[in-house]
Write a protein that binds this DNA or RNA. Structure first.
Length: 437
RNA sequence: GUGGGCGUAGCUCAGGCGGUUAGAGCGCCAGGUUGUGGCCCUGGAGGUCGCGGGUUCAAGUCCCGUCGCUCACCCCA
C-alpha cells in the first residue's frame, strides 16, 4: 500500500471513533451549561510569547512552534489558560463578575506519545474569574465531578483528591523545610505512590533534611480528615484559617451533592507552578491510568501576565484518559450509525419516481439514501440493512401503476403499501409515536 | 531526550530447526434469475511478510541498520 501516514500522536477519527469523542464532548457542554457557564474559544495558533511568559512551565520545552512567513514566533496552543487570561485581561473591567467561562479546545504538545498521552487532545476547560470566595472553589470541583457522573462514573470509579498549596507549604515550613527547599520537596511529594517511600526519603535526605523532618513530611501527606488537620495544625499561624476554609469547602461540596467523590489528599501538588490555593485532581479509583482532570486556584496569574489583578480558578479535563476509563468500565454507548430511509427502486421506469421520493423525504427532514447502480432489489435491501436504514421505501412497477409506495420497517420486518402522497405523513406519524414511546 | 517489546491481508492472528505458488477467521465485493435485508452456500478482490542492506544454493524465518507502532522512564496539557 502506498504510504500516506499521519503524524505520530495525532488521531484519525473513523465514524465509530468520532462517536466516542462526540459523546464525551456533548456531555462536557451539557454539564458546563447546566452549571451556568458560557462557552468561548480562541485561536489554535498563538504568539509563542504568551506561553514562554508564564515561566516555570515546562510546557514551553514541548511546544509545537515555528516561525511564520511574517517572521513571528508562533506556537500551536498547548493549553488554554494563557488565551483565556489574555481575553479576560483585555476586557477585565467590562465583563460582569464573576466570569464563568468554559471552552473545549484541541491542544497540542510535542512529546513522545504513550498510553493516555498523545500529541493532541481535546480538553474541557472550566474557569471562574473575579471571585475569591471558597464557594467558587467548591463550584468548580462540583462541575468536574458532575461531568464524570454524567458519563456514568460512580464514586467507586473516580476519586477527587483535594489539597491546598498554602497548607502544605506552611506545614512543611513548620517541620523545618527551608524556603529554598520547598519546590524540591513538593517535587518529591508529587512522586508519592509512584516511587517507594524509601527512595523518596533518600531524595529528601540529599536535600539536607534530617530523619525527623522526613518522617514528619510523610506523616503530613497522609492526613486525610479535617479533624486530623485541626488537631495537628489548628494552632499554627496561617494554617488554621486554611483548614477552616477547607472545612467550608467540603460542606459546600456536600450540599452540592458531590461530597462522596472527594478525598483530602495532601500529596496532590500539581505540576504547574502558578497554583496558589486549593488544588485538585480526578483519578480512576485504582489509579491505573493517568489523572483525568486537574485544576485549582491561580490568583496571581492575571496580575503576572496582564497586570490586571483578578483572582481566578479553573481546571482542564482531557478526552484521552476519560475515553480509556469509560471503555474499560463498559460505559461507552454502543455505536450504531443509521439513516431513516432507503429508497428501493425496482426497474428502470421507477428510477425517476424514486429520486423524486428521495428528494421529498430529504426535504421533510428524513436522512435518505438510495442505490446508485440500480442493482437487484435484493442488493438494494442489503444496502439498506448495512446502512442501518429504519425504513425501506419501495417504488416498483406495481406501486407506480397504483400510485403508491411500499414502506418496509426494517427492524420489525413489516411492510405496507400507502398512497404515494401519504409516504411522508405516514413516516412522520410513525417516527413521533416511536420516539415518544 | 533514555530504555524495553513488537511490525505477515482493512482487523485479529497462524506460519517447527531457513526449503515449491504465504494461510485462516472476521470484514469487503459479487453470485445463488431485477419484488425483499439479517442466517446459509459458492466465488472473488486484497500481501514486494514495514523499508534497506547482509549471510546463504535458498530468508516472514538468521544478522545489521532504518522507519513505524507500543510500553515505561523523564515530564505532565
Amino acid at each position: 500500500m502506498a504510504e500516506l501516514r499521519g503524524l505520530p500522536g495525532f488521531r484519525d477519527f473513523y465514524p465509530e471513533d468520532l462517536a466516542v469523542r462526540s459523546h464525551i464532548i456533548d456531555v462536557w457542554r451539557d454539564v458546563a451549561r447546566r452549571y451556568g457557564f458560557v462557552e468561548f474559544d480562541g485561536p489554535p495558533l498563538e504568539p509563542l510569547e504568551i506561553y514562554t511568559k508564564k515561566s516555570g512551565s515546562e510546557i514551553v520545552a514541548q511546544l509545537y512552534q515555528f516561525e511564520d512567513k511574517g517572521g513571528r514566533r508562533v506556537a500551536l496552543r498547548p493549553e488554554m489558560t494563557p488565551t483565556l487570561v489574555r481575553m479576560v485581561g483585555a476586557r477585565a473591567r467590562a465583563l460582569p463578575k464573576p466570569i464563568r467561562w468554559f471552552s473545549v479546545p484541541q491542544l497540542y504538545r510535542y512529546e513522545r506519545q504513550q498510553r493516555g498521552r498523545l500529541r493532541e487532545h481535546f480538553q474541557l476547560n472550566v474557569d471562574i474569574l473575579g471571585e475569591t470566595d471558597v464557594l467558587a472553589d467548591a463550584e468548580l470541583l462540583a462541575v468536574a465531578i458532575e461531568v464524570v457522573r454524567a458519563l456514568g462514573l460512580s464514586p467507586n470509579h473516580v476519586r477527587a483528591r483535594v489539597s491546598d498549596r498554602r497548607l502544605l507549604g506552611a506545614m512543611f515550613r513548620r517541620v523545618g523545610v527551608a524556603e529554598d527547599q520547598l519546590l524540591a520537596v513538593y517535587h518529591v511529594v508529587d512522586r508519592l505512590g509512584r516511587e517507594s517511600e524509601e527512595s523518596l526519603a533518600g531524595r529528601l535526605e540529599k536535600l539536607g533534611l534530617d530523619r525527623a523532618a522526613i518522617e514528619h513530611i510523610f506523616a503530613l501527606t497522609r492526613l486525610s480528615g479535617i479533624d486530623q488537620l485541626h488537631a495537628e495544625f489548628g494552632d499554627v499561624e496561617g494554617v488554621s484559617e486554611v483548614v477552616g476554609e477547607l472545612s467550608t469547602y467540603l460542606s459546600c461540596l456536600e450540599n452540592l451533592g458531590v461530597r462522596d467523590y472527594v478525598d483530602i489528599d495532601l500529596s496532590i501538588v500539581r505540576g504547574l507552578a502558578y497554583y496558589t490555593g486549593i488544588v485538585f485532581e480526578l483519578w480512576d479509583a485504582g489509579r491505573e491510568l493517568r489523572a483525568i482532570c486537574g485544576g485549582g486556584r491561580y490568583d496571581d496569574l492575571l496580575q503576572a501576565l496582564t497586570g490586571v489583578d483578578m483572582p481566578a480558578l479553573g481546571f482542564g479535563m482531557g478526552d484521552v484518559v476519560l475515553a480509556e476509563l469509560l471503555r474499560e468500565r463498559g460505559l461507552l454507548p454502543e455505536y450504531r450509525s443509521g439513516i431513516d430511509c432507503y429508497v428501493v427502486a425496482i426497474g428502470d421506469e421507477a428510477r425517476g419516481e424514486a429520486l423524486k421520493l428521495a428528494a421529498e423525504l430529504r426535504g421533510a427532514g428524513f436522512s435518505t439514501a438510495f442505490d446508485f447502480a440500480m442493482r437487484s432489489p435484493k442488493a438494494q435491501f442489503k444496502s439498506a440493512d448495512q446502512m442501518g436504514a429504519r425504513w425501506a421505501v419501495v417504488i416498483g412497477p406495481e406501486e407506480l401503476a397504483a400510485g403508491r409506495a411500499l414502506i418496509r420497517d426494517m427492524g420489525r420486518g413489516h411492510e405496507r403499501a400507502v398512497d404515494r402522497e401519504r409516504v411522508v405523513p405516514e413516516l412522520r406519524e410513525v417516527s413521533t409515536v416511536d420516539s415518544d414511546g
